[in-house]
Protein backbone atom coordinates (compact mmCIF):
# COMPACT_ATOMS: atom_id res chain seq x y z
CA UNK A 1 0.00 0.00 0.00
CA UNK A 2 2.65 2.51 -1.04
CA UNK A 3 4.25 4.09 -4.11
CA UNK A 4 0.80 5.24 -5.16
CA UNK A 5 -0.35 1.62 -5.45
CA UNK A 6 -3.18 1.86 -2.96
CA UNK A 7 -6.17 -0.21 -4.01
CA UNK A 8 -9.75 0.10 -2.74
CA UNK A 9 -9.47 -3.38 -1.18
CA UNK A 10 -6.38 -2.23 0.82
CA UNK A 11 -8.40 0.60 2.33
CA UNK A 12 -11.33 -1.71 3.06
CA UNK A 13 -9.02 -4.27 4.70
CA UNK A 14 -7.47 -1.72 7.07
CA UNK A 15 -10.92 -0.29 7.79
CA UNK A 16 -12.13 -3.73 8.81
CA UNK A 17 -9.08 -4.19 11.08
CA UNK A 18 -9.88 -0.83 12.69
CA UNK A 19 -13.63 -1.66 12.88
CA UNK A 20 -14.69 1.43 10.93
CA UNK A 21 -17.26 1.06 8.14
CA UNK A 22 -16.69 3.36 5.14
CA UNK A 23 -19.02 4.33 2.32
CA UNK A 24 -17.81 4.00 -1.28
CA UNK A 25 -17.04 7.70 -1.65
CA UNK A 26 -14.86 7.64 1.47
CA UNK A 27 -13.00 4.63 0.11
CA UNK A 28 -12.35 6.46 -3.17
CA UNK A 29 -11.06 9.57 -1.43
CA UNK A 30 -8.87 7.56 0.96
CA UNK A 31 -7.33 5.56 -1.91
CA UNK A 32 -6.05 8.78 -3.41
CA UNK A 33 -5.05 10.49 -0.16
CA UNK A 34 -3.35 7.45 1.39
CA UNK A 35 -1.14 7.08 -1.69
CA UNK A 36 0.14 10.65 -1.20
CA UNK A 37 0.50 10.36 2.56
CA UNK A 38 2.25 6.97 2.49
CA UNK A 39 4.64 8.19 -0.21
CA UNK A 40 5.52 10.99 2.14
CA UNK A 41 5.99 8.57 5.07
CA UNK A 42 8.43 6.61 2.85
CA UNK A 43 11.04 9.31 3.49
CA UNK A 44 11.47 7.81 6.98
CA UNK A 45 13.69 5.28 5.15
CA UNK A 46 16.42 7.95 5.15
CA UNK A 47 16.44 8.14 8.97
CA UNK A 48 19.51 6.47 10.51
CA UNK A 49 19.19 4.07 13.41
CA UNK A 50 19.50 6.09 16.59
CA UNK A 51 20.40 4.80 20.03
CA UNK A 52 18.17 6.59 22.49
CA UNK A 53 19.04 6.80 26.14
CA UNK A 54 16.03 5.72 28.13
CA UNK A 55 14.94 8.31 30.59
CA UNK A 56 12.33 6.18 32.29
CA UNK A 57 11.69 5.45 35.93
CA UNK A 58 9.06 3.20 37.43
CA UNK A 59 6.34 4.95 39.37
CA UNK A 60 5.00 2.70 42.11
CA UNK A 61 2.33 3.03 44.75
CA UNK A 62 1.06 0.84 47.52
CA UNK A 63 -1.55 -1.67 46.44
CA UNK A 64 -4.35 -0.57 48.71
CA UNK A 65 -8.09 -0.05 48.43
CA UNK A 66 -9.04 3.48 47.34
CA UNK A 67 -12.21 5.36 46.47
CA UNK A 68 -13.21 5.08 42.83
CA UNK A 69 -16.26 5.83 40.67
CA UNK A 70 -19.33 4.02 41.91
CA UNK A 71 -21.17 1.68 39.57
CA UNK A 72 -23.97 4.12 38.71
CA UNK A 73 -21.51 6.84 37.74
CA UNK A 74 -19.44 4.43 35.66
CA UNK A 75 -22.55 3.30 33.76
CA UNK A 76 -24.14 6.72 33.39
CA UNK A 77 -22.86 7.35 29.84
CA UNK A 78 -23.60 3.87 28.51
CA UNK A 79 -26.37 3.76 25.88
CA UNK A 80 -27.64 0.55 27.54
CA UNK A 81 -26.94 -1.21 30.80
CA UNK A 82 -28.57 -4.01 32.73
CA UNK A 83 -28.27 -4.98 36.40
CA UNK A 84 -25.03 -3.09 36.88
CA UNK A 85 -23.43 -4.27 33.64
CA UNK A 86 -22.69 -2.58 30.33
CA UNK A 87 -24.93 -4.10 27.69
CA UNK A 88 -23.40 -4.77 24.27
CA UNK A 89 -24.23 -6.62 21.09
CA UNK A 90 -23.72 -10.38 20.85
CA UNK A 91 -20.11 -11.38 20.29
CA UNK A 92 -20.62 -13.90 17.51
Amino acid sequence: MSDSAVEPEDVRHVASLARVDLDDEEVDRFVEQFADILDYFETLDEVPEVDSETDLANVMRDDEVRDSLDQDEALRNAPESEEGFFKGPKVS
Partner: peptide, 19 residues
Protein backbone atom coordinates in the same frame (compact mmCIF):
# COMPACT_ATOMS: atom_id res chain seq x y z
CA UNK B 1 -20.91 2.48 21.39
CA UNK B 2 -21.12 0.35 24.53
CA UNK B 3 -19.62 2.47 27.32
CA UNK B 4 -20.39 5.75 25.57
CA UNK B 5 -21.29 6.92 22.09
CA UNK B 6 -24.27 6.60 19.81
CA UNK B 7 -26.52 3.67 20.64
CA UNK B 8 -26.13 0.67 18.34
CA UNK B 9 -29.29 -1.13 17.25
CA UNK B 10 -27.98 -4.60 18.23
CA UNK B 11 -28.97 -6.27 14.99
CA UNK B 12 -25.56 -7.58 14.03
CA UNK B 13 -22.70 -9.06 16.01
CA UNK B 14 -20.20 -7.08 18.08
CA UNK B 15 -17.79 -6.35 15.21
CA UNK B 16 -20.55 -5.20 12.86
CA UNK B 17 -22.14 -2.94 15.47
CA UNK B 18 -18.75 -1.59 16.52
CA UNK B 19 -17.87 -0.70 12.89
Amino acid sequence: GVRYGPSPDYEGNWNEEFA
